[in-house]
Computed example of a mutant assay.
Amino acid sequence: MAMMNEKDYYAILGVSKDADAKEIQKAFQQKARKLHPDINKAPDAEERFKEVSEAYAVLSDDAKRARYDAMRSGGPFAGYQGAPRPGPAGGAQTPGGFPFDGFPFGGSWGPAHRSAAAYNPETGADVVIDIDLNAQQARDGARKGVRYRRYETCEQCSGTGSISSESAHACPSCGGTGSIDVDMSFLFGGGRLQMVCPECGGTGRVVADPCPRCDGTGRRAVVSEAVIGFAAGTHDGDVVRMRGMGHAGTNGAPGGDLVGRAHVAAERLEGRARTGFYLAGFCAPFLVSLLITGMTMAMTTLCAVPFALGVLMVVSDDVLHRSVLWWRRGAVQFANGFGNGVFFAVLLAGFSRCSQSMTGPSYRMM
């Protein structure tokens, strides 16, 4: 979810930045009536209704609106309870008294007073790379160099996302609950609507002085290089895991791994050959059943054609250069198809016997 300083709530509601409370409420009423899910059945109506409600929840509250304006302008009061806000007559008021309340005296003006960012520690994801190996490399082992994109820990903030010693604070917009309430009593007779806080993204915590280099996430996008070593006797699908070389976690959370996955063409069963093994296996029980029961040549041919097609698909996949593992995987696919074919063949035979018994002499005498 985008943070509230990344969205233009005034544009979403269609009002000017100097709009008063009545103009904001009127604009919200008009848009909410058109977008309410009970009335508007468009696929994106619910999402747009939530966005309009989010904008109203922020702009209808003096303190939240002041924080939002300060955060978007990059003002020095952004992220603090003492931020000035517009008063009823357009003058400036402060919710916490003197506007410098809460500032550590002796501090420097600069990046330490940037706008707040959501504090959301999440473990970094693995980076998985398929690496092609020929039959000899798989047999003898190989080392492969790779370049890949990933997130690495930000050096400036050491991954915390904050340039101060304390990285996380309770979100001032929701008080640490992770959600905000929107008064809907004037619309359709509703009560209060609870929604995810747009500033902290539902975590209830923010970085009040985010690192300017990583924007408070604690990680940066980079291009990395690594050498992945595959041991002798590697097979298709085997993986090599390099700890901590995947995506770095956000806000100091653990990072993921770099995973090299061997792609050995001589052992990989895919595409036409995979389908061919299954098709041949599926048709085999029908073909055997028809030959045993002595059905007509037309019925036998009807089953023989897809069986032959499956065999042709397998043979056309360079079978002379395939490994033993490839043939084993093909046998598994053939067995899967054969099992399903037996099931349907038995089912078909049962229906055939029922049909014959219903049209036999004993049935006609009844």
Rank of each mutant, 00 (worst) to 15 (best):
A226C: 08
Y148W: 04
P121E: 06
V239K: 14
A117I: 01
G271N: 12
A280L: 01
A266V: 03
C354R: 14
R65N: 05
E155G: 13
F307M: 13
V324L: 10
V182N: 09
G191K: 06
R205K: 15
D181Y: 09
G249L: 06
G97L: 08
A345G: 01
A345V: 05
P86N: 08
I12H: 04
S73C: 05
K26Y: 05
L312V: 12
T94A: 14
S179R: 10
H169K: 04
R65F: 10
M358H: 08
R219D: 08
A304Q: 14
D238K: 04
L291E: 14
G310A: 01
S16N: 09
M242W: 00
G189H: 07
C154I: 05
E51C: 05
G79W: 00
G255P: 03
F334Q: 03
P361R: 07
G256P: 01
P306G: 05
G91Q: 15
G96C: 10
R114W: 02
S355G: 06
Q356W: 07
K64F: 10
R353C: 07
E225I: 06
Q137V: 05
D317T: 02
S289Y: 14
F100N: 07
D132F: 12
S165F: 06
I129K: 14
Q25C: 00
V314Y: 09
K144P: 08
G337E: 01
D317M: 08
L187K: 02
I39T: 11
P76A: 07
T300E: 07
A19F: 01
C197Q: 06
T217M: 13
G97R: 09
G360R: 09
R149I: 08
R220I: 05
A116G: 03
R272P: 04
N40L: 08
A57Q: 02
A253G: 02
F186M: 13
D38M: 14
Q25K: 15
G90R: 04
G74L: 02
L287W: 08
L187F: 06
N251D: 06
A349S: 11
N134M: 11
E51T: 11
E46R: 15
L320V: 06
M71H: 12
L269V: 01
